[in-house]
Write a protein that binds this DNA or RNA. Structure first.
Lengths: 152, 152
DNA sequence: AATATTTATATCGTTCACGATGCAAATATA
DNA sequence: TATATTTGCATCGTGAACGATATAAATATT
């Protein structure tokens, strides 16, 4: 059979699988606090810089607002954050962490290390991770560029 | 702020983003034939080996049957494949490509190369891809192992 | 042979992800 | 200032993912 179509030859399938499995690895750590992995990503963004409009959060996560808006609403319903209309620009919705949202950072302090260490193996070590990051960043940059190009 | 929580330090976020962007890259190529990326993956599996039970397809894609079953039903509705009860084991549903499903392989012959070449860049070249594959395979193997372990 | 367990698949509910579209506020242009 | 365009966010519909659970067939145990 044509080797081009072999699943094992495909980068995309590996990324797809790795991404799903790593989300599953987060699950037991986050489920205790009623969080999903994308919600955890939102928290990472807000812990870095609190009080941001929806658009900035979406851009940071490379997601569309139609993905982020419902996600934020669920987190608001959970009392993790607030969404208030911007004063300077009435179109913007400013997202702020609540006390509960900020406190989650302490409660989840073990998470990055736990997941991080669970991925380490023969070929993925503190020495090789930078090279892996570099390749993934290049791929992401390339795809972002190509995908945007075909939209215009 | 604690560097552990920085989005930019996280392997998982890179994999998550790369996976999503690559799916988006496939979209325009597959949409012409009414296919989604996961449906394309099912086709890759069946082109490799036609006539498989649901479970074998799910295992190959590292997915659960509750993800694959509805997916296969949609593809059946599109006339791409058939699902017939197994004779040897009446619990199994045997999935077979239709003529239309087999013919899609010719129509999509350009897809692997098109997507493949669109990710090539400075740090991702035919020379470095094997190393990237090796790291991703290691990560996948590690995660598969860890995730199964915590289920038992 | 009768009962228990495992296996293969399916159903259900929830949460993304995202294309398409809508709407109101802000900005640019006439 | 009136009109057009852009921008920020939201709504809607569809298709994954996946945890939890159900069901029937196959297999193992008693």
């Amino acid at each position: 059979m044509d080797g081009r179509f072999k699943l094992d030859n495909q980068l995309c399938f590996r990324l797809y699988t790795a991404s799903r499995l790593i989300t599953q690895a987060y699950h037991p750590l986050l489920a205790d606090y009623g969080l999903t992995y994308p919600q955890y990503l939102v928290l990472l963004v807000l812990w870095e810089k609190d009080s941001q409009p929806v658009n900035d959060i979406a851009k940071r996560l490379q997601l569309e607002t139609n993905t982020v808006t419902p996600l934020l609403k669920r987190m608001e319903a959970e009392g993790i954050l607030t969404r208030t209309q911007g004063k300077k620009d009435a179109r913007q919705m400013i997202v702020k962490l609540t006390k509960k949202g900020r406190e989650l950072q302490d409660k989840l302090s073990e998470v990055p290390e736990t997941v991080g260490s669970s991925v380490l193996c023969d070929s993925v070590t503190p020495e090789t991770v930078p090279a892996l990051f570099h390749m993934l960043d290049d791929i992401i940059g390339q795809l972002k560029h190509n995908n945007n190009e075909s939209n215009s």
